[in-house]
């Protein structure tokens, strides 16, 4: 029997009441893949992730998780198989790091008994995986942005998912923490075989850390493949309306993108402005 894909979308349409949405999405993610979803703001990245988590239901088309219909799975069953790392997490009242990570066990806890030893062990392991073992008692709301992001990741790992969805996990992090987070995600994928699907904004970092890129534009997939096939001047111009130069990364050979010369328009405008300055 062939290995069933981790998640598969066939002809998925979804429309918000405002009319905005996704149209005709066909996407198949194999187990163990590490995929970035790219696209301009409002292109449908987050919507796509929510559909895959069953938080939204497709108007047309089907989504199957490991061969079974996602819509037919209970919330509990979904939570034990698919975890989502949201963009940010604000708590209305403070919890400790350990308490937040323990929330990842929600779908395993019984109503009246406390967390079992196994739950605590999973929580401990999840905290160790993101290097937060010594911070268990700290209040979540006092952590830095980078630490919070790791706590949320640990919470997702505590669900013991087979598919990990991340919604722009490095959006509000500095360069150092961006690299740490992406390395961690890659490690989880390579060492533990966790299937990873993440929406991203930074094209170069996506090309560095992901094997497969899916480019969305206005609710449609316009490119899907390894970085070399997706990050091309024509596609980027078509989707983002920006002219770019694509070179090869000197060390890794992957595509490496920068603004194209006609971005001089921007620079010359700035020079004109400074020449016009009365005090120069």
């Amino acid at each position: 029997m062939a290995v069933r894909p981790a998640i598969r979308l066939d002809g998925v349409h979804f429309t918000y009441p405002s009319g905005f949405g996704l149209a005709g999405i066909d996407l198949c993610i194999e187990r163990g893949e590490r995929v970035a979803i790219l696209g301009p703001n409002g292109s449908g990245k987050t919507t796509l992730l929510k559909l895959m988590l069953g938080l939204l239901h497709p108007g047309q088309g089907t989504i199957s998780f490991e061969g079974s219909d996602l819509g037919g799975m209970s919330r509990m069953a979904v939570a034990r198989a698919i975890a989502m790392v949201p963009q940010e997490l604000l708590l209305p009242y403070d919890l400790t790091v350990r308490e937040v990570v323990l929330l990842g066990r929600t779908s395993y806890l019984s109503r009246y008994r406390g967390p079992a030893d196994e739950d605590l062990e999973v929580v401990r392991a999840a905290m160790a995986a993101v290097d937060l073992l010594s911070s268990g008692g700290r209040p979540y709301n006092e952590l830095s942005g980078g630490e919070r992001q790791r706590v949320i990741l640990a919470m997702a790992l505590a669900q013991q998912p087979r598919l990990l969805l991340l919604d722009e996990p490095i959006r509000s992090l500095d360069l150092n923490h961006q690299i740490r987070m992406l390395s961690l995600i890659r490690e989880l994928n390579v060492k533990r075989g966790l299937t990873v699907l993440s929406s991203m904004h930074d094209l170069n970092l996506s090309s560095l850390y992901f094997d497969r890129l899916v480019l969305l534009s206005s609710g449609r997939i316009v490119a899907d493949g390894p970085p070399g096939e997706v990050i091309r001047p024509d596609t980027i111009h078509e989707v983002f309306g920006v002219s770019v130069l694509v070179a090869r990364h000197p060390g890794l050979g992957i595509p490496w993108m920068t603004l194209a010369p006609d971005a001089r328009d921007l620079l010359s405008t700035r020079e004109d402005a400074s020449e016009a300055h009365p005090y120069r």
Binding site: M76, R80, L91, Y93
Partner: peptide, 14 residues
């Protein structure tokens, strides 16, 4: 604590 959508994602039949 993590919001309505977050609770659903964690497996709560909200």
């Amino acid at each position: 604590t993590v919001g309505e959508e977050g609770a659903r994602a964690l497996g709560v039949d909200l």
